[in-house]
Computed example of a mutant assay.
Amino acid sequence: MPALLAAFSLYLLIGSLTMDAGDAEFPGPAFYPTILAVAGLAVALGLAVDVLRHHRAHAEGQADADGEVGQSAGRLRPARSDFGAMAWVFFGFLAFALLLPWLGWILAGALLFWCVTRGFGSPRPLFDVLVSLFVSSLTYLAFAVVLGLTLPSGILGGGF
């Protein structure tokens, strides 16, 4: 996961640094993607350090948070991943990317935020839909009003 996050962050960083922004004033269109890319690289580094540190603790036979020792007859236990949670986030992002032009930012963003909450295991799907719509709407307003940038409005703006 750290490698995947680092690769995506590097892709975003390279894209934002090579973006032709013309004569845009500060902060410009590359400012926020650059911040997100650097933050993604920092999180990837932190995750990598945590994975290596946790792996060493298991390799040395130290107890983890549950009191279980990482070695069983001299072998390491395989790491477990929650592929269901990862699928919610991955397919939510994929749906967001594909549906953004038609649904618009507010609905596509809400779908993405809702899928992420499902991936993180939230037990309240209806509440999550409402919060996702609220956060997506606030993001749309922040970009439109504060930054003066337009995000796709999709079917809500009569664009479909």
Rank of each mutant, 00 (worst) to 15 (best):
A57M: 12
A59C: 05
A24R: 04
F83G: 10
F160Y: 06
L133R: 06
G121E: 08
L130D: 02
T150A: 15
L100T: 07
A39F: 13
F120E: 04
L156N: 04
L112W: 09
S136V: 04
G40N: 07
H55A: 14
L112C: 11
M86K: 00
L36C: 12
F8I: 13
A48D: 02
L10S: 09
G157R: 08
G61A: 03
G159F: 11
G74A: 11
S122N: 15
L130Q: 10
P29L: 09
L100K: 10
L36I: 12
S16H: 08
G67L: 12
G28Q: 03
M86L: 15
D82R: 10
A142T: 12
A48G: 13
V49A: 11
H54I: 00
L126F: 12
A79L: 15
D23R: 07
P27I: 03
M19P: 00
W114I: 05
V131S: 06
C115T: 06
L156D: 03
E60M: 12
G121P: 07
F31N: 03
S81I: 13
G119N: 03
L112H: 02
A85I: 08
F143P: 01
L99S: 13
G119E: 02
F26M: 05
M1S: 14
R56P: 02
P101L: 07
G109S: 04
G74M: 12
W114L: 13
I14Y: 10
L98H: 06
H58T: 00
A37R: 06
L52Y: 07
P33A: 07
E60I: 08
R75A: 14
S136T: 03
G22K: 10
L133E: 09
R118V: 02
T34W: 05
V51R: 14
R53F: 07
F96P: 06
A73E: 15
V38K: 04
L112Y: 06
R80D: 11
A97Y: 08
R75L: 07
A95H: 03
A87S: 14
G92K: 01
M19E: 15
Y140L: 04
A37D: 02
V135M: 12
A7C: 08
L103T: 02
Q71S: 12
L103M: 11
W114A: 14
A21D: 10
D66Q: 14
V43R: 08
P27S: 04
S136G: 03
A57D: 15
H58N: 14
L100C: 10
A37K: 06
L5R: 04
L111Q: 01
R118C: 01
S81M: 14
F160M: 11
V38A: 11
D64M: 01
T34D: 00
I106W: 05
C115A: 15
V135A: 14
W88A: 01
L151N: 02
G15R: 08
L45A: 15
M86D: 13
F90K: 01
A73Y: 11
R77C: 00
L13C: 05
L151S: 04
